[in-house]
Every structure is written in structure tokens, then in C-alpha cells.
Design a protein around this nucleic acid. Sequence first.
DNA 1: GCAAATTAAATTGTGAGCAATTAAATTTAT
DNA 2: ATAAATTTAATTGCTCACAATTTAATTTGC
Lengths: 149, 149
Amino acid sequence: MSQSAASAPNPLLQLENQLCFPLYAVSRLVTKAYQPLLEELELTYPQYLVLLLLWEHGELSVKGLGEKLLLDSGTLTPLLKRLEQRGLVSRRRDARDERSVLIGLQPAGEVLRHKATCIPEALMAKFQLSPAEFEALRGQLNHLLNQLS
Amino acid sequence: MSQSAASAPNPLLQLENQLCFPLYAVSRLVTKAYQPLLEELELTYPQYLVLLLLWEHGELSVKGLGEKLLLDSGTLTPLLKRLEQRGLVSRRRDARDERSVLIGLQPAGEVLRHKATCIPEALMAKFQLSPAEFEALRGQLNHLLNQLS
DNA sequence: GCAAATTAAATTGTGAGCAATTAAATTTAT
DNA sequence: ATAAATTTAATTGCTCACAATTTAATTTGC
């Protein structure tokens, strides 16, 4: 009865029938697709996400960044310290609420923005998705994002 | 001209218009959705993926696991050593090719399979997606997975 | 048959992610 | 006014994830 190979396969337990695995794998592959582009800016993918937010919104607190990226200070604090050490962002306590730490862009961080403008389009090209496919996928992921967060 | 807030927004550089961010965020949220279920088995999510493959295929080499999960030995070796230490999997050199390490299930690892059968359905419930939505998303992610890998 | 090239794992070093805890500032309830 | 509760970051400890290198086994070309 019990052989060396797997017994009585439960189709629900098979990797290819699940949603979780392609999500996990695609997410990592997309990060890897960014890598050669981000390498030129010497940024990691989560560092790039932080800068995207700062370019868009200006100064943000650690809490604000965390709410938008769904990351906590345990992840953000060391990441932001690395960006600060490289002179890309500034960190200062909010005078109106000393608990908050406000993250701003230093000139070198502003300059990087120009180098980054071509990144989204370059990525789109790698995906090889039609605009309709792209929008459909984006919509479904955002729907699931709302479902889960 | 240059104000404290961000200047001349480039819509392509905005987080909400990109595919990458919801992918990254949903992937992490899905892993987190697994966590309370996997906690009962004392497994992390990537450890669970490894066991799914072993339950399905029986013995697999590190290379075989890596090909299916898109992970390399730098990630798998320490993970597999932890599973071995807990008595869930076995590791032995392939006699026919001493470069390969074959990963098999120990009895305790086989037993875990029964406890895991309910996990996929429990997850599906958390997603709150209709079967059609589920299949559409799975299809698009698998399409992108093929595009990128 | 043997040197060169290739392959498979392991190792090293860095940077996320995240749970849990700690410390300090602020808010609230009385 | 002040004690208790809450909020915000930082810290600690653990596990991925992955690039780059190393070591050993196998395959290939000659």
C-alpha cells in the first residue's frame, strides 16, 4: 500500500491548483525583473517603493510609509537608516509630536527621481501583457488586496 | 517653484498605478493569511510549500525542489536542515550522483499531511473570491509566471 | 584516459519581513 | 492634574531570499 511515491493525491494540496504559489513566485520574479534597472540606482525594490512614495507625497512619517506599504517599523527603520546613510533621505522627529519620525528627501534623493522615470515603462515591456490584461490583473489584485487588508 | 510637497507628478511613478505593488503586498498578505493555520503545524509558508511538493511527489532532489519553487540552494539548504532537525524530512546523497541530495519524508512529515488537508479550503474562504474570479486570477498569474520564468 | 567545462550543494554576506518586546510621547478618563 | 491607556519608533531574534563564491562530482571534448 504505502509506496515510496506519494499516496492518494489530494488535488487541493497540489501546488499548481493553488493561488498562493503563483502569487508568491510571480511577486519574486517581478522583483527580480526590477533588479537590473534598480541596480543602476543602487536601490533594492522596497527602497524603491519608499522613494516612489516620497517623490509623490514629499515628507511622510514612518507610520505613513508603513500604512501605504503595509510594512512596520521593524522593516522600515533599518531600511530608512540605510537610505539616510547614503544621503538619500532625511529623518527628523516631528516637533508637534515627538513620537513621529518624519522622512524627507535629501537633494540626492530628489535627483534619483529623474533616473527612475523610465523604470515603469521598462517593466511593462518585460511583462508582455496587453493593456487589457494588465488592467484586469491590476484590478483583481487590488480587489484581493482590499479583501485581505 | 520647488516646494516641500512633490513636484510635477509622473502618474507612472505612482504606486497605485503599478502592477508591482499590489502583487508584492497581496503576496505578503496571503502568506500572513496562512500563518495562523501553519502555526498549528509549526511551519513557515516556504516550509509548507516544500512539504506540499514532497507529499505530492515523494522524494525530490534539492535541485528538483528548487526548479519547482524557483528557489536556489542558498534558500533551500538551511530551510531543509531545519526541517530535518525537526524530524520531518530526510536528506541523503543520491548514490547514482553524489552531487545530488535527495529529500524525503520522515514519518512525522507524512503525518503532518493529514493535518494540512484542511488548509487550502480554509484559505479559499479567507479570499472571498467567487470560483470564476479565483480561476481568472490564477490563470493570469500563471500566464505572467510563464512570461517571466 | 584525462584535462576542461559543467553541474549540484553548500557557504558567506546582505537586506528584507515580521513577531514580540521596549521606551518614550501623547491622549484619555477620571 | 494625573494615572492609565494608547500610539509611535526602535530593538531583538528568527527565517527567508538571493548574489557570489567555493567545493566536490560528473560530463564533455580531445
